[in-house]
Design a protein around this nucleic acid. Structure first.
Length: 603
DNA sequence: TCTATATCACCC
DNA sequence: AAACGGGTGATATAGA
């Protein structure tokens, strides 16, 4: 079956029409918007003995939810299956319905017609009779195409595992429908003042340099300033100035006059807002794009999704009055997955010690048995960097660069990892060889990457960790949503949930149980730990990494609208139930408490 | 003026 | 040849 629907920015989908066909006898249902709205439930069976076939089922499930219909039990999503079948291989016409048909040498609807119909559906609003019929006919042609694709793919599908992926698509639809609560007035204010904030930052610092033209940094002007200041500057192989932050950091060490411009560039780079999809109800909703990445991760748009841009913007996440949000993430997820799947007892012991990095240092003989994060912080950091480097297949040179140590130190760290976790390395090397020889590699539940002739071996080495991590997250989302937890967003190794404040502790506990269950299922009984951070209204979501930038922006905002004039009133919606318009915890109005000059955050 | 490319930065 | 996995996306600049 297939829906056409309008997709307003940040809002739930609005179903426009639906076509469903029973494959055994070809019986076809065509329903228009009003007919759909009149139904309490789907006009066909969706229970346990029915297979529901769709393409990109989170969209169909989203329409079910918008209509208040119970969602289908057995979902076969041919998008997820097509991605899984072709993951890693070229799909010349993409991974959409038409692309999938083309891949199998079949034709569907003309691409031009699909595009024009999509535009018509996205438009939303009212439709003439002719437009409605056109939409229905188009919808029906997609159903015909879907049926062809199903008949072509059915024999290659691993049904039980496909149904697990379909079940996740329904969970994803629930999450997409719920969304992330956003401080709408503050979001609008920051968005409206975006350029003014940038201008203010540039104005103060660039006065001494003159390297900006408006809001753009000009390489030519920077070159001129460097010449005048007598500073030699590294260049890229192309001959252009190297303008990455690493270069700026290095150069600022030798030439302190470079530091302010570096700070300014860092701040501005974190101000690439942002097309956050926030609905009129203050919820950030966007497509999670399940199964989009090679490892099966979700891949939502970075600009539309609140967890996409720089972390300081997460301060916009604010639970509704009386509610709380919680960010629950797995501790050292990939390390734990590597330990369990390789069955490396030393590695599993390190994971279960609660501090894998410190324990690794001890196991490698670099720290005494009673060492802690407090007593041996720098050693722990080195071993932590080594663990992360191994997960990505980093070499000694890059690791040396990263930890600011000579290559011998990095080589020694990597050697100790190989010696301490021999079993893990045997397993990892074997996985890469297996993948090369068999041409594929897959997770516990069958998410597969197909391997071509010039594959990156580091991708193959990382795949079991990252892709099983994605598998685990999908399972946890399934459990959490099916147990009635309100999930706002999945974030690769974390889940954001919300609950009324008085229930948040229970909700966190249930979520942690779901995540622990999911890890045990993927890892054959090995349970991964989770950590939770709770933010109860009126406290907003806070991430330490973004605190300084958040404060900077709030201070600039306060300058742009002097303290004492409460911004909230103008928007009318931040008035609290108790009649007050703001609290100390609400930076919209509390910015005046900051020393105004602090917003120039020089090193 | 528009587009393509290179480079860079952000996330986990 | 180099060697940091999976991504999205903005921006500056070169070139059509």
């Amino acid at each position: 079956m297939d829906f056409e629907f309008a997709a307003p920015d940040g809002g739930p989908p609005e179903p426009l029409c639906m076509v469903a066909r029973r494959i055994e006898d070809g019986r076809t249902l065509r329903l228009r918007r009003e007919e759909l709205r009149a139904l309490q439930t789907a006009p066909f069976a969706t229970d346990a003995d029915v297979l529901f076939v769709a393409f990109y089922a989170s969209a169909e499930a989203g329409c079910f939810l918008a209509l208040g219909w119970p969602t289908p039990i057995n979902v076969l999503d041919l998008f997820a299956e097509f991605r899984n079948t072709t993951n890693g291989l070229p799909t010349p016409c993409g991974a959409g319905l038409l692309g999938a048909l083309a891949y199998y040498g079949m034709d569907g609807v003309a691409a031009a017609e699909k595009a024009s119909m999509r535009t018509l559906a996205l438009r939303g609003g009212e439709y003439t009779d002719a437009e409605q019929t056109a939409l229905l006919d188009y919808c029906q042609s997609d159903v015909t195409a879907l049926e062809k694709l199903f008949l072509r793919m059915r024999d290659e599908i691993d049904l039980p595992r496909a149904l697990l992926r379909g079940r996740y698509m329904v969970a994803a639809a629930r999450i997409e429908a719920n969304g992330v609560p956003i401080d709408l007035p503050l979001f609008e204010r920051i968005r409206d003042q975006w350029h003014a904030i940038q201008d203010r930052l540039i104005e103060r610092i660039d006065a001494d340099y003159g390297v900006f033209e408006g809001r753009t940094f000009k390489a030519s002007r920077w070159a001129a300033w460097l010449t005048k200041a007598g500073i030699p500057w590294p260049r890229l192989p192309s001959g252009a100035l190297a303008l990455d932050d690493d270069t700026f950091r290095e150069m600022a060490r030798a030439y302190p006059a470079v530091a302010p411009i570096r700070e300014l560039r860092v701040s501005l780079s974190q101000m690439r807002l942002s097309d956050l999809a926030v609905g009129a109800d203050g919820r950030n909703r966007c497509l999670l794009s399940a199964f989009r990445s090679k490892t099966g991760r979700n891949q939502p748009s970075n600009t539309r999704f609140i967890f996409g841009p720089a972390v300081w913007l997460r301060g916009l996440i604010l639970a509704d009055p009386g509610w709380a949000v919680a960010y629950v993430d797995w501790s050292q997820q990939e390390f734990g997955i590597a330990a369990a799947l390789s069955n490396d007892t030393a590695m599993m012991a390190a994971y279960e010690s609660g501090d894998p990095y410190m324990t690794f240092a001890k196991q490698a003989g670099a720290a005494p048995v009673d060492a802690t994060k407090t007593t041996h912080g720098p050693i722990r950091e080195l071993y932590k960097s080594c663990v992360l480097a191994v997960q990505y297949g980093m070499g000694a040179e890059s690791l040396a660069e990263r930890i600011g140590q000579p290559p011998v130190v990095a080589r020694d760290l990597l050697r100790r990892h190989r010696e301490t976790y021999r079993r893990f390395w045997d397993w990892s090397d074997a996985a890469v060889m297996y993948a090369m020889l068999r041409g594929r590699l897959c997770t516990a539940f069958g998410w597969t990457v197909h391997v071509g002739p010039d594959v990156n071996p580091r991708m193959l080495a990382n795949f079991p960790m990252q892709a099983n991590g994605a598998e685990m997250l999908r399972l946890a989302c399934i459990f959490a949503t099916e147990r009635g937890i309100r999930v706002c967003a999945p974030v690769h190794d974390a889940i954001l949930i919300e609950a009324p404040a008085w229930q948040i502790e229970d909700a966190v506990r249930d979520t942690q149980r779901a995540m622990a269950d999911a890890s045990a299922i993927v890892l054959g009984g090995f349970r991964l730990r989770t950590e939770a951070k709770v933010f109860e209204w009126p406290d907003r979501y806070a991430d330490e990494r973004g605190r300084r930038m958040w404060d900077t922006v709030q201070a600039v905002l306060a300058e742009l609208r002097p303290a004492g004039t409460c911004g909230a009133g103008a928007h009318g919606s931040t008035v609290r139930p108790d009649g007050s318009c703001c609290t100390g915890a609400h930076p919209t109005c509390s910015a005046g408490a900051h020393p105004v000059q602090s917003y120039i955050c020089l090193l």
